[in-house]
């Protein structure tokens, strides 16, 4: 039934500015305004979705800059599905190539962290490992356990203080300064809402080891080798409290 597809092809071409493609179907009284309405609605849908998913980027660059950039991104990378909850996976990488963003050195990292937060928000539900469940394990069993990360866990490490900067911006503070302290951001949604906190290199190393399927003993050794001053007990207790580990099958 090519005629409906032909029409769709022509309509999409007309949305892109090639109005003549649609002329076989346009009534004589069809002005430019009707197509503009569709064009604007589509752009607004994409831009609103990006604004919802990148609120910290929006707060840093302002409404006008954000909406102009988001509209350009949407034209180059339209959504591929009807669920816009997830739209903008490639927006951070696109900003990295976007010339006006070159003057805003933190922006790409901030976009990346917004994306991590959104992924944590919509990740699958699962029961998190509690301190109580862990305490029930014999110590030798704990050492040999491979703790899996909760499906909502997202973390990313930076060689400067971008996570602190992002956290401040996300909390609505201005006057942001970037420290040169290496940091990581952890996002997790084990107890209803997404929680995020800035973590250090030792915690990041522990999470990486767990993600790679190592046992608790191996993860601890790896942390202590790289960071001999790390205090493992509070580090581990903090991660448990955040709910970063999946409950253990018993």
């Amino acid at each position: 039934m090519p005629e409906l597809l032909d029409f769709q092809d022509a309509f999409v071409a007309a949305l892109g500015g090639e109005r003549s493609a649609l002329s076989p179907w346009l009534a004589p009284d069809a002005g430019e305004a009707g197509l503009s309405v569709y064009r604007n609605t589509i752009a607004k849908g994409c831009v609103d979705a990006l604004a919802a998913n990148f609120p910290t980027v929006l707060s840093m660059v302002g409404e006008d800059w954000f909406r102009a950039a988001a509209a350009l991104f949407a034209r180059e990378a339209p959504p591929t599905g009807a669920t816009l909850l997830d739209y903008g996976k490639d927006f951070p990488a696109w900003l990295e190539r976007f010339p006006p963003a070159q003057d805003l050195p933190y922006l790409v990292g901030v976009a990346h962290l917004d994306r991590l937060w959104t992924e944590a928000l919509f990740a699958a539900e699962a029961a998190a490992l509690t301190a109580g469940a862990l305490a029930a394990l014999p110590p030798e069993a704990l050492a040999e356990t491979r703790l899996a990360l909760h499906p909502s866990v997202r973390f990313a490490a930076f060689d400067a203080g971008l996570p602190s900067l992002w956290s401040s911006a996300r909390a609505g503070h201005d006057g942001l300064e970037l420290s040169d302290q290496a940091e990581a951001l952890l996002c997790v949604r084990a107890h209803g809402a997404v929680r995020h906190r800035v973590i250090g290199e030792a915690e990041t190393e522990f999470l990486r080891a767990c993600r790679e399927g190592q046992t608790t003993a191996q993860a601890a050794e790896r942390v202590l080798t790289a960071h001999p001053a790390a205090d493992l007990a509070p580090l581990f207790a903090g991660l448990i409290a955040d709910g970063v580990f999946l409950d253990i099958d018993r």
């Binding site: 909850l85 919509f122 699958a124 539900e125 499906p151 949604r189």
Partner: peptide, 9 residues
């Protein structure tokens, strides 16, 4: 479409 996620609040 606003609820087609694996999970979440």
């Amino acid at each position: 479409e606003n609820y087609m996620s694996a999970g979440g609040p």
